[in-house]
C-alpha cells in the first residue's frame, strides 16, 4: 500500500485548508472542511446545488475569506499562480474586444502564449470578437487565458456547464492533458457526476456544506453517503470519457520517479499527505 499514496506524498501541497467554514446571514454555507490541494492532482468537488462547492473553490483561490478555520498557501517565492475559469462569464456587447486581446489581459507572458493557444486549440478564434463565441469556445478561451500564467493551480468552476456531451469529454481530456504536461494541481467544481468522476484523482462529495465522503472515484461511488445522494447507478463506468486511471504522475515526463499504478485504492484519504511542507 505504499504506491500512489507515497507518490502523492512527495508532491508539494499548494494549499492547505483546515477546518474551514463560511457563514452568510446566519446560515452555514461550509462547515469544518479539511483539504489539501496537491500539485499534479485533479480534485473534483461534487454535490447538489447549494452544497458549498463553489464556496469552497472561492476560498481556495482567495476570492473570499473563511469565517472559521484556516487557509494556508504553501508556496515559496511569491504568490501562488492561479488560473481560474469562472462559472459565469457574461460577455458585454458594449465592449468591443477581440479574443486575442482578451486572453492577453492575463499579463506579460510572451513565452507561454503559443503553448496556451495551441493546448486549447483557440488559434482560429483569436481575431474574432469575444462576443461572437459559442459557449464551448468561450470555455476554451477562458482556459487559454488561465494557462497563460503557467498556473500552479487550475481552478475550474463548472467548466462543462452548457456544453454538449462530446465537448464535455474533450474538455476533460484536455484538463487531464494539461495536468500531465504542467504538473499543476487542478480543482474542478461540478455536478456533472459520471463524466467528472472518471476524470478525477480525488473526489470530494459535499452535502450542505460538509464533506459527505471523499476519496478516489471508484471508492467514492461505493460509499453509502454518495449513493444516498446520487443513487448507485452513476459512476465512472457510465462516463463518456475516462482517463486511464493509472497514477497520473507516471504520465508526466518530469515526474519519472513515480512509477505507481494502484493510485485509486490507495489515496482514499488526503490526510496521508505530506505534512512537512513550507507553510506560510
Amino acid at each position: 500500500m505504499v504506491t500512489a499514496a507515497a507518490a502523492l506524498r512527495s508532491e508539494p501541497v499548494l494549499i492547505r485548508a483546515t477546518g474551514v467554514g463560511v457563514e452568510y446571514g446566519g446560515r452555514a454555507l461550509l462547515n469544518g472542511v479539511d483539504l489539501d490541494v496537491v500539485a499534479g492532482r485533479i480534485t473534483t468537488f461534487v454535490g447538489n446545488n447549494g452544497a458549498g462547492k463553489s464556496t469552497l473553490l472561492r476560498l481556495l483561490i482567495g476570492l473570499s475569506e473563511p469565517s472559521a478555520g484556516r487557509i494556508e498557501r504553501c508556496v515559496s517565492g511569491g504568490r501562488l499562480r492561479i488560473g481560474y475559469v469562472p462559472q459565469h462569464f457574461a460577455v458585454d456587447t458594449n465592449l468591443p474586444i477581440s479574443v486575442r486581446r482578451f486572453i492577453a489581459l492575463a499579463g506579460k507572458v510572451r513565452q507561454q502564449w503559443a503553448e496556451a493557444i495551441a493546448a486549447t486549440g483557440v488559434e482560429s478564434l483569436l481575431s474574432q470578437p469575444l462576443q461572437s463565441l459559442s459557449g464551448g469556445e468561450l470555455r476554451r478561451v477562458l482556459l487559454a487565458r488561465a494557462l497563460l500564467r503557467r498556473p500552479q493551480l487550475l481552478a475550474l468552476d463548472e467548466p462543462a456547464a452548457g456544453l454538449d456531451v462530446r465537448s464535455q469529454g474533450a474538455l476533460y481530456r484536455l484538463i487531464g492533458e494539461l495536468r500531465d504536461r504542467y504538473g499543476c494541481a487542478v480543482v474542478v467544481v461540478s455536478h456533472d457526476l459520471n463524466l467528472v468522476m472518471a476524470a478525477s484523482d480525488e473526489v470530494l462529495c459535499l452535502e450542505q456544506g460538509r464533506v459527505a465522503c471523499r476519496g478516489a472515484p471508484h471508492s467514492v461511488v461505493e460509499h453509502p453517503e454518495y449513493q444516498k445522494l446520487f443513487g448507485a447507478h452513476l459512476g465512472p463506468e457510465t462516463a463518456v470519457f475516462s482517463h486511464a486511471h493509472t497514477d497520473p504522475h507516471t504520465q508526466s515526463s518530469d515526474l519519472e520517479d513515480h512509477k505507481h499504478h494502484k493510485h485509486h485504492e490507495d489515496h482514499e484519504d488526503h490526510e496521508h499527505c505530506e505534512r512537512d511542507v513550507d507553510l506560510r
Partner: peptide
C-alpha cells in the same frame, strides 16, 4: 487602463490574476 479593462470584463478573474 489595462487593470481597469480586466476588472470591467470580469472582476473576480482579474483579482485571481493579481
Amino acid at each position: 487602463w489595462r487593470p481597469l479593462l480586466a476588472i470591467t470584463l470580469h472582476e473576480e478573474l482579474a483579482r485571481v490574476e493579481g
